[in-house]
């Protein structure tokens, strides 16, 4: 094929590719790229969202952001969620998936999960099937601060006074993190199980023959071999840590309370938009949020990069 000339073959090939790409690309541009660019544009205005008239105010919204204590409270909360939630979720999920796949010892000469593991796999996945709001409503009943609340009545059997899970400003955010972990673990159990299933059984058998106990088996063999999957999970969970909107909206006192103790950026964006009608300022918060998420993703990719093990 000579350069610079379109042969019928090339037309067919590129025509095929372009026609397949055009629709998704158009949808992506219209529904993702353009709203994001518009948000960036709105962040530089004083738009109230209910009239097409607004002025460009430069970076005023961003300077305002730096002096906004509620914004910083939300950022701190994201920081705490980011530190705790992915780590706890991954540790629990790894532990469960190890038990489900390899923790049951030898059976018929092969490493197998604990008894009933296929049943547990389904059970662990349940929370993932529920919509987040449903999880929130469920936990309203579980975390009800009265004696009759599900968790409190269980504690009551042991003589513990009712705990105000979402009422105590020091406890509320931890409670929300707990719900996020509960909701997330199931999916990562399945994800890590798939990762472990992808590792050839011979490796584990060889290790077991050499006398590796379960502890060694997990830390020296399993974890390094599923490290890539863990890394993916970490990025997903990290991004989820910048959301938490639905749970906080449904569960927290006075939407983000008590005393701002549970507020998160998406909730503040919602409030600025639909309660205060500060579309420009809300967009500035949104832009800040995008940069936080991107920074996190880039950092994670950088820090967790590691040699890939071929098998």
């Amino acid at each position: 094929m000579r350069r610079g000339r379109l042969t019928p073959g090339a037309v067919r090939k590129w025509g095929f590719i372009v026609s397949f790409l055009a629709a998704p690309l158009a949808i992506y541009i219209v529904f993702f790229v353009s709203p994001n660019l518009q948000a960036l544009q709105l962040a530089l205005t004083n738009s109230r969202g209910i009239s097409p008239d607004f002025q460009y105010v430069g970076f005023e919204n961003f300077t305002r952001l730096f002096g906004d204590e509620v914004f910083w409270a939300a950022v701190r909360h994201h920081g705490l969620i980011l530190l705790v939630m992915p780590l706890v979720t991954i540790v629990i999920a790894l532990f469960f998936s190890f038990l489900l796949n390899l923790g049951g010892g030898q059976r018929n000469g092969q490493l197998a999960g604990v008894w009933g593991s296929s049943f547990y796999k389904v059970v662990f996945f349940f929370p993932q099937v529920l919509a987040v709001v449903i999880v929130g409503v469920l936990f309203q009943a579980v975390l009800n601060p009265q004696k009759s609340g599900i968790l409190n009545s269980v504690l009551g059997w042991f003589g513990v006074d009712p705990v105000g899970w979402l009422i105590k400003p020091d406890l509320a955010l931890w409670t929300i993190i707990g719900v996020m972990v509960w909701q997330g673990v199931g999916f990562y159990v399945v994800l890590f199980s798939a990762g472990m299933a992808g590792v050839p059984k011979e490796i584990f058998e060889a290790a077991a023959l050499d006398g590796a106990n379960r502890f060694t088996l997990f830390f020296k063999i399993t974890l390094p071999l599923v490290w890539n999957t863990v890394q993916v999970g970490w990025v997903y969970l990290g991004i989820a840590a910048f959301d938490a909107f639905a749970l906080v909206q449904v569960l927290s006192i006075d939407r983000g309370g008590p005393d701002n103790a549970t507020t998160v950026l998406p909730l503040e964006i919602f409030r600025q938009t639909f309660t205060y009608y500060r579309f420009g300022y809300a967009s500035a918060m949104g832009v800040a949020l995008v940069f936080l998420v991107l920074t996190f993703a880039a950092l994670t990719m950088r820090v967790t990069r590691r040699e890939r093990i071929e098998y």
């Binding site: 009800n144 601060p145 009265q146 009712p162 105000g164 899970w165 979402l166 009422i167 006192i253």
Partner: peptide, 8 residues
């Protein structure tokens, strides 16, 4: 008041 009312 019952402190629990804050969560209801």
């Amino acid at each position: 008041m019952d402190p629990a009312y804050e969560g209801l």
